[in-house]
Nucleic acid binder design. Structure first.
Lengths: 328, 328
DNA sequence: CTCTAGCACTCTTCATCTTTGAGTGACAAC
DNA sequence: GTTGTCACTCAAAGATGAAGAGTGCTAGAG
């Protein structure tokens, strides 16, 4: 644990660096601490030995290390009261009752991303809490069929499929009736299994094209497993000075496009969580602040991606505000 | 019209620059033209006066101007025979009959983007040729309903909506039955209109919540108007040397994210069209090569986005191949 | 009239130096 | 423990110069 003055110096350095993105020199802190630059240099040197600060070169000012940010976030940061303007904008969204809650989240994050110049990600996970409401198959022209699956939360997925030879409307009806009778109210992530062991054996007896029909449904259900992800302000983070370098931009944009990004975004625990630099598995140069949301049992993750030099206090406050409003 | 030798010099310069991305000096062309560098310099100077070539500075080699690329594309370019490997990969996709045609297009463009390091865009326009096949409304828990619209080509759109007070299943059924009876086989882009003038007057008489139901359907139909767009290899173009600059990357990525990009991608005319630099309204630094596709009356646009220094012959050949295979 | 050799000239690129300013570390004095 | 001071280090920015690629122009040859 750091002494009071050391902690205070660390706090000031972190906040100064967050503001300016420039290494902080000892003289900058003199006024605020009412002591000489030499004293501060001694303390800085001490904090560097403990690993909270780093230098970019031997005679440069100090920059917080990951450990420094971590200490700041865990011990020094105070929740920031949001300015009237910000709250106002968010309030108008949440007081508009005609909006679907998911649309309200999108719109809020648009504002937050715009305000902060960070990138937001919304990761909805439909499969866990959704139960099968109804399935439907329609024949289309030229041997195509479309299979549609609807869940009790209003999620809809569909898939068009080509059937090799023509298939009778009667057979389609039999199959969908069977599924609707037997599998309604089954959680979506269990449907694939039940489809194989409970439905397939039955339809294979009296439906000629059962293989094709089975595949159609099987495909739709596995599509639910792919979580749906939405970026808000994808390029906003590029306005941060740490992304003035072509290589860094390409690197990050590639990671945004990579499908594996879902693993970096998804959050398991409740509450607001901060992953600084190497603590997240997306990119060394960013911090991700995440929180889970839960609307009528349907879970998802909201993530804000910014540079490590992120306005932690502001983002945490905004997410707390968002969380408390989603509850209602 | 250029003389034979001038045209030849222009052709060689364009192709050399496409290959190397470095300004082409007179001496590089000596061997291939069997004359001295001085002669070539004279010709180059002539071509520059006509506006086909440009210099990056007073004593640099020459770079093709937009007019130069245009002349090359219109008069000098020969279709390139594709190498066995490329054709082979594409063939395996099109000979796999179990694939939906739209999936085959995606997969082909993945290969093309990978091969060329350009970015592909697929723009599907569902509304023009799709006719209404069936509508459906399901009540969900807590005053939500989901409205689903299915077209004869197998497109599906849905929207979840909140109804203020509870609504009877009977009323929902009446409305959907009416729409299904009266509007089936109506082209999607005419449905909104008919909904307002033919359906609304009727249901407003005997359905209490007609406003909400009407809105639900109206929303879904307007969603069809938003064309669905898909990027393939979005970051591939960033590997091109013209995008080694942070500003240029940010600029292009922002344009990719901007919703207005649809206007730059959509193509009206049949055939393969090339838009060089300022000829396209996306970005001065890129060329877009587009072609319309048509599957069973459903139209869309395929676009390849690359630097102006693009392998025009190769891309045109690939798109021609793609077009002829989509036909089947 | 066309082509070519040659030369002066321009401009980029790269490396090397220099200057300036921000900032540190160490030490002696308070 | 705190402070003033001074030598030292390094990045950033500008100046300088040499090398190399390439041009334009001109005079002479074919």
């Amino acid at each position: 644990m750091l002494g009071e003055r050391e902690a205070n110096i660390l706090k000031l350095i972190v906040e100064e660096y967050i503001k300016d993105a420039k290494p902080v020199g000892s003289s900058k802190l003199c006024e605020q601490l009412d002591c000489s630059s030499a004293t501060i240099r001694n303390e800085m040197s001490y904090l560097e030995n403990l690993g909270y600060l780093e230098k970019t070169h031997i005679s440069s000012g100090r920059v917080p290390s990951e450990k420094g940010y971590r200490y700041y976030v865990d011990n020094l940061m105070k929740p920031k009261n949001m300015t009237g303007e910000e709250v106002l904008k968010l309030q108008t969204i949440f007081h508009n009752n005609s909006l679907q809650i998911s649309d309200a989240i999108s719109k809020s994050l648009e504002i937050i991303s715009e305000m902060t110049n960070y990138t937001s990600v919304i990761l909805g996970s439909a499969s866990k809490e959704n139960k099968l409401k109804q399935v439907e198959v329609l024949p289309l022209e030229s041997n195509n069929i479309v299979a549609i699956v609807i869940t009790d939360k209003g999620h809809v997925e569909h898939k068009t499929l080509n059937i090799e030879s023509s298939i009778s409307i009667d057979e389609i009806k039999k199959t969908t009736d069977l599924i609707n009778k037997m599998l309604v109210d089954t959680p979506i992530d269990e449907v694939s299994e039940k489809l194989e062991f409970e439905i397939k054996p039955i339809i294979s007896k009296y439906v000629k094209q059962h293989e094709a029909l089975y595949n159609a449904f099987y495909n739709v259900f596995t599509d639910f497993a792919k979580k749906n992800m939405q970026f808000v302000g994808k390029t906003n983070i590029l306005k941060q000075p740490e992304f003035n370098d072509a290589e860094k931009i390409k690197n990050l944009i590639n990671k945004f496009e990579d499908k594996k990004i879902i693993n970096s975004i998804e959050e398991q625990e409740d509450g607001i969580h901060i992953y600084i630099g190497s603590e997240n598995n997306l990119d060394e140069d960013v911090t991700i602040i995440k929180t889970k949301y839960n609307i009528d049992g349907e879970e998802g993750t909201i993530a804000i991606v910014g540079p490590k030099r992120m306005e932690y206090d502001k983002v945490v406050s905004l997410l707390e505000y968002l969380n408390s409003n989603i509850e209602k």
